[in-house]
Amino acid sequence: MLKSGAKSKLHQPRAQSRKALTSNKPEVVRAYQCGLNRRAFLKQTGAFTLFASLLATKPVAVAADLPSNVGQDEQNVQFDDDAKIILTQVQMHLFPDDGDGPSANDLNAFAYLSWALTDPENQAEGDQEFIVKGVSWLQDLSQKTHGGGFMQLTKTEQERLLHQIARSRAGENWLSMLLYYLLEALTLDPVYGGNVGGIGWQWLAHQPGYPQPVVGKTYRDFQ
């Protein structure tokens, strides 16, 4: 019966489970499934301090970076051009065009991310701000270590930089959040903008259910 899909954007679950928790038995009770909001979760897991310190130590011009339509549902979040290019490139590192399966671009992952961030819950949890801050952080680190912006680096240097930031909890959280949305673009129904034409499902030989959601009957239409 019940147990709906929990969201674990940042951290790995307390214990790994092969299956989502959608059946009668609680294989693992994850923080989000317990209904904790992220703030509570971060506090509980001790990550809050790290996250907060990141915010404190990265004095980026957050307010100026925020698009004017934040909070307006059904409109994509607007990133500035630099952020858009960097995020698209990072997504291609996370899910590359390697000859086996769709790449992030094939999945329409950036457009999906821009749409998914308009979800009220995702807005309330500050995902957009966190992603924007992460871009600034990545740029700062790139300048500091290579004397140029992330897009000026070779792909190998970019990959190395991503591994470098993954060594900090906050950097790992940032990548984990981008992966969270990217993997939604891989396997959610195409009606949400990712998984174009079911390309992700085809690669994974995943058989969708029937009937599939249609425009006008997506989850947001029930909210």
């Binding site: 899909g5 790994q16 790992e172 396997t187």
Partner: peptide
């Protein structure tokens, strides 16, 4: 629940996987 399954696979031995 393919999306939840895929997301659970990004962690391996405590490390974040990508690529």
């Amino acid at each position: 629940s393919p999306t939840s399954e895929a997301n659970s696979l990004k962690w391996q031995d405590g490390n974040l996987l990508w690529g």
